[in-house]
C-alpha cells in the first residue's frame, strides 16, 4: 500500500505543478505541453483508482487528439499574450468567488464521502470479476449494440457533412497546386518562335532565335 501511496503522491504532485504551469507559462506552446503532462498524470491517477478505461481514453482522446489540435490552432493563430493578460485584475474577484465556491463544494463532497479508500478502492473495478473495460464493452456491444452502431453512423454523417459542405473546387480561384508545378514539362512553358530577322546586314543565316517565357 505504501508503494501505491507513494506513486499516488508522485502523480498528484506532478499533476498539480503541471496544472499550475499551464496557466502561468508565458509561451502558449509550453502551456499546451504542460497540459499534456497533467493529462498523462491524471491518467496515471485513474489507473491507480482502477479505472483503466478512463485512463486510456484520456491519453488516446485528449493527449492524442485534442492536444494536437490545440497545438495546431495555437500555431495558426497569432495570439498577443500581452493583451490577454491585461484584464487579470478585473477578473480576479469573480474568479476568486468561483474558485471559493468550487473549493467549498469539493470539501463538502469529501466530508460527506465517508471513509472509503481514495486509492485502489475496487468500486470502479466492478467487483473482482473483470476490468471495467471488459464490463463497459459487454454493455456497449451487447445491450446497447444497435444504439452504439447508430451513434457511429451519426458521427459519420457529421464527417461527410463537414467535407461535403467545405470541400469544393472553384474554377475562379488562383491558388497554386505544387503537384502541378513540379510536374511541369519544358513544352508547357517554353515556346520556340521563329522570328524573321530584321534587315540584312547583321543576319548570318542561323535560323530561329529562342524566346523564353517565364519559368514558374
Amino acid at each position: 500500500m505504501a508503494v501505491t501511496q507513494a506513486i499516488f503522491y508522485l502523480f498528484a504532485t506532478v499533476l498539480v505543478v503541471a496544472a499550475l504551469m499551464v496557466i502561468t507559462a508565458r509561451n502558449p506552446v509550453h502551456s499546451v505541453l504542460f497540459l499534456v503532462l497533467s493529462f498523462v498524470n491524471g491518467a496515471g491517477l485513474f489507473l491507480l483508482a482502477g479505472a483503466e478505461f478512463l485512463a486510456f481514453t484520456l491519453i488516446l482522446v485528449y493527449v492524442g487528439a485534442v492536444m494536437v489540435l490545440f497545438l495546431f490552432v495555437l500555431m495558426m493563430l497569432d495570439i498577443n499574450l500581452q493583451r490577454m493578460r491585461e484584464g487579470f485584475l478585473n477578473y480576479l474577484p469573480l474568479g476568486a468567488v468561483i474558485a471559493f465556491v468550487l473549493v467549498v463544494e469539493m470539501g463538502a463532497m469529501l466530508a460527506a464521502g465517508g471513509s472509503g479508500a481514495v486509492v485502489g478502492g475496487d468500486g470502479a473495478l466492478g467487483g473482482t470479476e473483470a476490468g471495467n473495460t471488459t464490463l463497459l464493452g459487454r454493455v456497449l456491444y451487447d445491450t446497447y449494440l444497435l444504439p452504439f452502431e447508430v451513434a457511429a453512423l451519426v458521427l459519420l454523417v457529421a464527417l461527410v457533412a463537414a467535407i461535403a459542405l467545405t470541400l469544393r473546387h472553384r474554377p475562379d480561384v488562383k491558388k497554386q497546386d505544387p503537384g502541378q508545378q513540379v510536374r511541369v514539362r519544358r513544352e508547357d512553358r517554353v515556346r520556340l518562335v521563329d522570328m524573321p530577322t530584321e534587315g540584312a546586314p547583321y543576319a548570318p543565316d542561323t535560323g530561329a532565335t529562342g524566346s523564353k517565357g517565364g519559368e514558374g
Binding site: 451519426v154 454523417v157 457529421a158 461527410v160
Partner: peptide, 10 residues
C-alpha cells in the same frame, strides 16, 4: 431522429 435530421440539414 438525429441521424435523419443531421443528414437533412446537410
Amino acid at each position: 431522429l438525429e441521424l435523419m435530421s443531421l443528414s437533412l440539414y446537410t
